[in-house]
Design a protein around this nucleic acid. Structure first.
Lengths: 198, 198, 198, 198
DNA sequence: TGCTAAGCGAGACGGTACGTCCCGTCTTAAT
DNA sequence: ATTAAGACGGGACGTACCGTCTCGCTTAGCA
């Protein structure tokens, strides 16, 4: 389909995305105003609204570009412990690349807008999970992880821990802490075989 | 310290807190305006600002009252599986009692305000963790959980899962899912004994 | 100069001016609030501030419109006494058309704002004076008034009296009082020729 | 009648009056806040309200003290021109002693409060008029002014001119201007005898 | 001399209105 | 036809100040 009329200036797209990320890191999501984004990008608000329907769409797009579209993968080390640590690292990397606190606020702002929520999940949630899921599959195939282990649950246990600690910052996500968590997840928390007959 | 000047009208305190919770459930955190809170509470903005320094302080206080100050406890069932499920339930309850999305947004808004962040942790984060932590201690004392299990890590693994699923809503936090997670945490994910010599 | 951007809604201009005059007559200048003006005009404060820099500018403009931009004139009756009474009437009319007390308060509020003061003079002060000044010129040309009479002084003597009595309301500005003043001004107060050698 | 209870601190009365006059000269009547008066006087608002019912009462009292309660008099020079100039000077002095613009604003604020208005007149309006009135009486007795000259009108013509020029500042009230006005008032404005048969 | 109560000082309150930031949209001129 | 840009109408903000209420203290007059 052909487009008519004046073509959109592609430089504005980038300038706005850059200004958005810059502002996010400087003042955070809550104090991000399109007025200031437009100012820093050297353009105006209508030009932004023409490209992104809402502030949420803009931030999501800007962050998505920053995270990169190149498929994330967990390197296959052959060692399940190393693989799991690698999996956690994938999650940690997401938080390293996104200004602190933005994820939670953005997610909240997506409440009630299904399309936006889907986009959020596809951009900031699923890529890392898919990479870790594949890693789990490989480890199961190798016989390193239980055959009856639920793939999604495994991914959740790893991802949740990172998310939780990154969000509340009550505990570290560094290598040592992460290794400790991995060992516990592998060995289990139980002291002996247990039944649950209730 | 002396108390002087006209005393604050305690009815306003309650009316504002109630109006805040009501608005949070109706329009969410992002669209909560102090103007509307004041209107519904039958008072004015200055009266609110006199009591709570910021919107965040107000919301935190209102939610804290709603969660109750009565100490949360995990009932001691004697069965470690039941106890762990009970522990998870404590976390789930927090989310059930707080309007959806508020926790994340509020936490984000606390960024950069140490005092506020501390208050947030004390009100909405630590009570549930302490209750679960005590449960873990009991199970360890009974010999149901590994003696070398790190208490905070155990609490994290339970709490993180709930938080993660409640936030992203990609998986359930119902009884069945929770039991499955508990069993995996107890038994561990590994198919056999593993070494990590890297 | 180019005109760009969304044009101002002229209906708002009129609605605000009308609401201003209405409020002035009902509650006076001191209790005039832009909040109430906006409410009655069915608009908001920013829309008002966009049009008038301050409350003073608004009131001045609203009154100016009400007084009319049509040039005031003193009818040429051929009789100097009638002309002078007509001149005084012009001054009286200004006070009749402006809510009581507004002139003084507005003038006071213009203190220290040269631009505003100038606008005040141009709108509420000079038109009547010019009209009376022309009348004085005509009477002098006819030989009814002294050839050496200072035009501005003559205007002052008439205008001051009206202003003084309107403001303090200690004496009337009705036809009889005014005639009496005119006769005194024409004849002079002295009982006989006087010298001043001090 | 005897008073019981703790006596009022007389130092506060003076401190508040002084602070009021100070503020009036610095920021004018419109920006005079009791909050700031109290601050500068080293006291509090209730202490002020206990002494003066309203801001107007306070300002009026403070100005009244400043003008002095000593009866104003126009010196009897024997020369009617000098006397009239002296009369005008009495009016001018009032404005010299009162911060500019305060008179008009205060008068406006007295609208609708009969008691306050009366106090205003007694304090700031009548003393000067009485002094000039006496001067007119003397000049009439001497045969310097017309026997049929209305005393109040004569006072008005002098007072109005000063008030008018002081308020609008469009003309001077210095000695030369004043002499010119006095000569015109004495001689009259008419070029010849005039009849008014309309 | 000690007691009582009226009135005082001071501080904080409940509330009105302020002037401003920012939102999301509309209009014009240019491409 | 569609863009870039400027200004608009309007919602909500956080604050200055108003006039008042409450408290604890001071002081005069009575016991």
């Amino acid at each position: 389909m052909e487009r008519t009329g004046r073509p959109r200036d592609p430089l504005i797209d980038d300038a706005v995305r850059d200004a958005t990320v810059e502002l996010l890191t400087q003042v955070g999501y809550a104090r991000l105003t399109l007025e200031e984004v437009a100012r820093r990008a050297g353009t105006t608000k209508p030009a932004i609204y023409r490209r992104w329907r809402t502030r949420q769409h803009l931030v999501l797009d800007a962050l998505g570009r920053r995270l990169g579209t190149n498929t994330t993968r967990v390197p296959d080390s052959g060692c399940v412990i190393c693989d799991l640590i690698g999996g956690i690292t994938v999650f940690v990397t997401v938080f390293r690349r996104v200004p602190p606190g933005v994820l939670g606020a953005l997610l909240t702002d997506c409440t009630g807008q299904p399309g936006l929520r889907t986009a959020f999940m596809r951009t900031l949630f699923e890529p890392a999970r898919n990479a870790v899921g594949e890693m789990v599959d490989r480890a199961k195939a190798r016989g390193d992880l239980r055959a009856d282990l639920d793939r999604d649950l495994a991914v959740d246990l790893l991802g949740a821990l990172v998310h939780y600690r990154a969000l509340f910052a009550h505990a570290s996500t560094d290598s040592e802490s992460v290794t400790s968590a991995v060992m516990t997840l592998l060995r289990g928390m139980a002291a002996r075989k247990l039944d649950h007959a209730h």
